[in-house]
């Protein structure tokens, strides 16, 4: 976000992810905001799908966590979603970002897929502490 003079963010209250029903709920919420902001149909689907992948990761690996959705209103408008948990963390982020890598016999497309669907992707993780993934799509 370097180079942008003003970046105001408006967040809707964080959504707790503790069951798979909430994965469906959170992707409906993010799609609604993306639609209200003026994102087109394909981007709405990309954003909702990326959030679905990350919310599912929270549920799968950490059991529970939080998703915070914000609209970025500044020189450049966009939608930003922060997905965080206090779960086991990721020991090797580079490996976790590889297509097809999974520790739970899933397809291993969640993290690398979410990165491809969004414009910005940032991941911070510490084993034993948790993981935070921040994704952004510009309007």
């Amino acid at each position: 976000m370097k180079g942008f003079k003003q970046m105001e963010a408006k967040s809707i209250p964080s959504i707790e992810i503790a069951s798979t029903e909430e994965i469906v709920a959170v992707r409906q919420k993010v799609r609604k905001l993306a639609s209200d902001m003026g994102f087109g149909a394909v981007d709405q689907t990309r954003i909702a799908t990326a959030v679905s992948e990350l919310a599912r990761n929270i549920y799968q690996y950490a059991g529970k966590g939080e998703v915070t959705i914000s609209s970025l209103e500044g020189d450049r408008r966009g939608i930003q979603i922060v997905c965080e948990d206090s779960g086991p963390g990721i020991a090797d982020i580079e490996l976790a970002m590889t297509d097809g890598y999974s520790t739970v016999k899933s397809l291993g497309l969640g993290l690398p897929g979410a990165r491809r669907l969004m414009d910005e992707f940032e991941i911070e993780s510490e084993p034993g502490k948790g993981t935070r993934v921040t994704i952004t799509k510009w309007l």
């Binding site: 394909v42 990309r46 491809r116």
Partner: peptide, 14 residues
């Protein structure tokens, strides 16, 4: 499959 869903599935790697 809706067009948006088809595009997203391919980008996702499915």
């Amino acid at each position: 499959l809706q067009p948006e869903v088809a595009i997203t599935l391919m980008e996702l790697g499915m």
